[in-house]
Nucleic acid binder design. Structure first.
Lengths: 246, 246
DNA sequence: GGGGAGACTTGATGCATATCAAGCGTGGCG
DNA sequence: CGCCACGCTTGATATGCATCAAGTCTCCCC
């Protein structure tokens, strides 16, 4: 299942001293509770850029919290088309869709050299029985993913290409910002084609969208470096106020 | 929150003798466990056709299991466009997206006169602590919704209009079939416009899709009555084998 | 540091679906 | 039972994005 490399590197594991503890599963747990959660994480894994953390059909052993780096998750249709279902940055959980049938429903690829905290799921469920707030966090995590997916459906069903791109950039900006990174300058770790798949567009359309946003003075994107010049302008675009046609 | 009517009718509540018990939250629970779950459902609600069971922003009090009838859930964008996020038939759960922030993230409308079992969420979480299999079921329910949404993203991102319509009909057919209804003959409870919103298409495109499927001898749809003539043909269409263009 | 493959950009063209429009069917209510 | 509003169907046209194509950039590996 894990293609990282062998032997897997052993790392000091502890949610207690993790930089993303306040965004991750332990959210709102007491110190003593976090320590019990720590016992589930035997050791962290490193995943090389391009490698798969798990693949569609793999049995669910663990959920994975991204600690460092970033991932994309994608499914492949019968006729071989890839659909990217999400991008994941530190503090976000991977593998939630596997709980439904105890098998992973998508494949998770590292977009750069990354590091995850595997959380053995059976043990997590067991621990959650005695830690109500842990259970509550897991429920919220799952529910939040549903809400996120619904807003993606709204995006796919009702937005034009420029609006989708703006929404994507804003979303990424917000998530990075809440992790202490700049909301206005960041680096895209994924290719244009992957952004396109995520947004239901072709890579050429992403390029043109980037050019449009540039021409409007909203953002500047050179290669993978993003600089947002007009955050409010972007937000207006997403709320559909700027619609000329459609 | 509840627009049903007053006074709300009091109905005999018991998962134990509900016809959809084997598709609903109690799945896999023992008789004694189901009886404890029964205690959470104080009384069932009836919801009139067109009425809202809950609305976006309502505080989360209960999840709702559909017992009789059907619902659509939808969100409205800033500029007033509706996006239907799902259709729900007996045995399916409503309100899962509210767990994330203790507020409903969408509005649920009854597509016909319907009946739901409200399950008080705080009590459900509490009960789940002492019933591991109940907790596991809830986790699975949430995860299944995520998987379902991901397949909708695939549909929106990679399928043409006829394929989307075929996928929609097949999905409905399967869900009705697993509830003991005919998989080949059923009635659509929603308007063309609602199907279109759900599939990211306009109502006219749904009409044309229906005509295309009819011309190929796959299904016959008169008004809202569906008769599937060639189930395998439909499935082939969804897997993308019939693609001429695209 | 140089070569090459993969990623990105931009232009020209075509097509699938949206939009606009007009008429028909139907079911719900008085 | 009949009327009317709403839902459905089908046609004509417009348009936004996909597709095809060609060239540039960049970064990774030797």
């Amino acid at each position: 299942m894990l293609e990282a490399h062998s032997p897997p590197p052993i790392l000091k594991t502890a949610c207690s001293n993790c930089s993303v503890v306040e965004l991750c599963l332990p959210l709102g747990l007491t110190g003593a509770e976090v320590e019990r959660l720590d016992t589930l994480i035997v050791q962290r894994y490193k995943v090389k850029k391009g490698a798969a953390l798990y693949r569609t059909g793999d049995p669910l052993r663990s959920l994975y919290a991204v600690r460092i780096g970033s991932f994309k998750t994608s499914v492949v249709s019968v006729d071989g088309r890839e659909q990217v279902t999400g991008f994941h940055i530190p503090g976000e959980m991977l593998g939630l869709d596997a709980i439904s049938i105890d098998q992973h429903a998508c494949t998770a690829y590292a977009l750069e050299d990354s590091e995850v905290c595997p959380i053995h799921f059976a043990q997590l469920e067991k621990l959650a029985q005695s830690l109500p707030s842990l259970q509550h966090n897991l429920n919220k995590l799952l529910s939040r993913e549903i809400v996120r997916d619904h807003s993606m459906l709204m995006l796919m069903g009702n937005m034009n290409s420029d609006e989708r791109l703006a929404a994507f950039l804003l979303n990424l900006s917000q998530r990075l910002s809440s992790r202490g990174y700049s909301s206005k300058e960041f680096v895209l770790k994924m290719r244009r084609e992957e952004i396109g798949s995520y947004l239901g567009l072709r890579l050429e359309t992403i390029c043109r969208g980037i050019a449009h946003l540039r021409d409007q003075g909203l953002v500047e994107i050179t290669a993978r470096d993003v600089r947002i010049h007009n955050m409010d302008g972007l937000k207006q675009m997403v709320s559909g106020c700027n619609r000329q046609s459609h």
